[in-house]
């Protein structure tokens, strides 16, 4: 009965709010998806934070700082949305530290040169935007509202990345080579950010029925590829895929086979930076404990004084 009413609401495009009845599986699916999304924003600060102290100009440094600060903000919006489902911030962080909750695998790749800041902003944020634009219509109210806010802020991220790539691509031959190298390394992991092909994605069924997801992985991936190919041409670089070509009949680009063995191997902890990323988060969290403790103790004292 409850489940039927719930589904009717979903079918009418009404949003589900925190206090509304929802199937346990809907709740747990959302906790998994939103927390993974939140952790990705937070862990995603690391590969970019790596370049703040070495940004090539004051302008570049200020922009990168603002971008990383936005990622922290996005992580917090998402943790808030996730907490409305009845899980605490401490539990969420604990799940990340225990490896029970994942974050986007793309952040397990290192950022080796300044051009990687371009590739990350342009491709990684670009792919994230395609996904997040679609999720603005997700059925869970707090998640949907978070996505709207995040999308408003993200487009600067993608443009600043593209600007870096464009600048380097028209620079010295060495700079152009760095830009191409960054594109070569980030292209495939970026298009795999949309997740497994739908034919291999076991959880898609209910997620679509409940309108947590609004579009299939392959549909979103195709959209990202179609819109990015032209941008690559404009700045004179080449996508590292010999099979990439326009398919008149489909009205889309065809593209080569993705290496899912590598994808799963990175998801399961064997990427170049998995250990480093998690260790850094644990370290920052435990080193910040004294600040949280001091703030708590101050707040407790104030309550006694004001009582």
């Amino acid at each position: 009965m409850n489940e039927q009413k719930f589904q009717e609401k979903i079918d009418l495009e009404r949003k589900i709010e925190p206090k509304d009845w929802m199937p346990e599986e809907y709740r747990s699916h959302l906790i998994r998806q939103i927390s993974q999304h939140a952790h990705s924003e937070i862990i995603g600060m690391q590969p970019e934070g790596n370049w703040i102290s070495r940004a090539p100009s004051l302008r570049a440094k200020m922009i990168l700082l603002a971008k990383v600060q936005d990622e922290a903000g996005h992580g917090l919006y998402l943790y808030s949305a996730c907490e409305t489902l009845g899980i605490s911030r401490e539990e969420l962080v604990q799940q990340l530290h225990d490896g029970k909750a994942k974050y986007s695998s793309i952040f397990n790749y290192p950022t080796l040169s300044w051009a990687d800041m371009g590739a990350v902003g342009w491709l990684v944020d670009g792919a994230a935007i395609v996904n997040q634009v679609s999720l603005q219509r997700t059925s869970y109210g707090p998640y949907s509202r978070g996505m709207v806010k995040i999308c408003k802020e993200e487009s600067f991220h993608q443009r600043q990345g593209y600007e870096i790539m464009a600048e380097m691509a028209k620079g010295t031959p060495e700079q152009k080579e760095m830009a191409q190298d960054a594109l070569n390394r980030f292209w495939w992991p970026s298009i795999m950010m949309f997740g497994p092909q739908d034919s291999d994605s076991p959880r898609t069924g209910n997620a679509m029925k409940w309108k947590i997801k609004r579009q299939f992985n392959d549909e979103l991936r195709q959209k990202f590829i179609d819109q990015t190919v032209g941008q690559v041409k404009v700045i004179g670089l080449e996508i590292p895929d010999p099979d990439l070509k326009w398919n008149e009949e489909r009205g889309h680009y065809d593209f080569g086979k993705m290496n899912w063995d590598e994808f799963w191997s990175v998801v399961n902890g064997n990427g170049p930076c998995n250990i480093q990323r998690l260790d850094h988060h644990k370290k920052a969290h435990s080193e910040g404990e004294w600040v949280r403790k001091a703030a708590r103790s101050y707040s407790n004292k104030q309550e006694i004084i004001n009582a």
Partner: peptide, 22 residues
């Protein structure tokens, strides 16, 4: 616009400024 965690009212205001009015 949303919510946040903070131990006291001053920090709540400052966090709100940093989180929601960038």
């Amino acid at each position: 616009v949303g919510n946040l965690h903070a131990p006291d009212k001053e920090m709540a205001l400052q966090n709100a400024r940093d989180l929601y009015t960038r």
